[in-house]
């Protein structure tokens, strides 16, 4: 995929979920295509979903790494993907 097909991060809230969860990424030329691609790729086994797609470049992530590590990348902008804390499915109200 050429530079005209940027990466988008996909967040899905399932029918019974309370929050959108990061599920992965897709390549697409624009937001419309990103949404349909995300729907096709990431919601084939569930219904009643809400999908957010965000250009990867637009995401700024906090650094979860070991604070003592000396070789942290400069700045807090991720390369491609955000890193989100993985909350177990059975933790409620979070």
């Amino acid at each position: 995929m050429t530079p005209g097909w940027p990466l988008w991060e996909v967040f899905v809230r399932s029918r019974n979920g309370l929050a959108h969860k990061h599920v992965g990424s897709v390549h697409a030329v624009d937001a419309t295509m990103a949404l349909t691609n995300a729907r096709d790729v990431y919601t084939r086994r569930s219904e009643g979903t809400s999908i957010w797609v965000v250009p990867s470049a637009a995401i700024t992530a906090s650094d979860p790494a070991d604070k003592d590590a000396l070789f942290d990348p400069a700045g807090d902008k991720i390369y491609r993907h955000p890193t989100f804390y993985d909350i177990p499915a059975d933790v409620k109200n979070i």
């Binding site: 650094d63 979860p64 003592d68 590590a69 000396l70 942290d72 390369y79």
Partner: peptide, 23 residues
């Protein structure tokens, strides 16, 4: 760099997950 590598290995040994922004 040596100590970073040691800390990295310690994280692995402790079953820590390495994420994209980590050393």
């Amino acid at each position: 760099e040596a100590s970073a590598e040691l800390r990295f290995q310690a994280r692995i040994d402790a079953e820590d997950r390495i994420e994209p922004t980590d050393w």
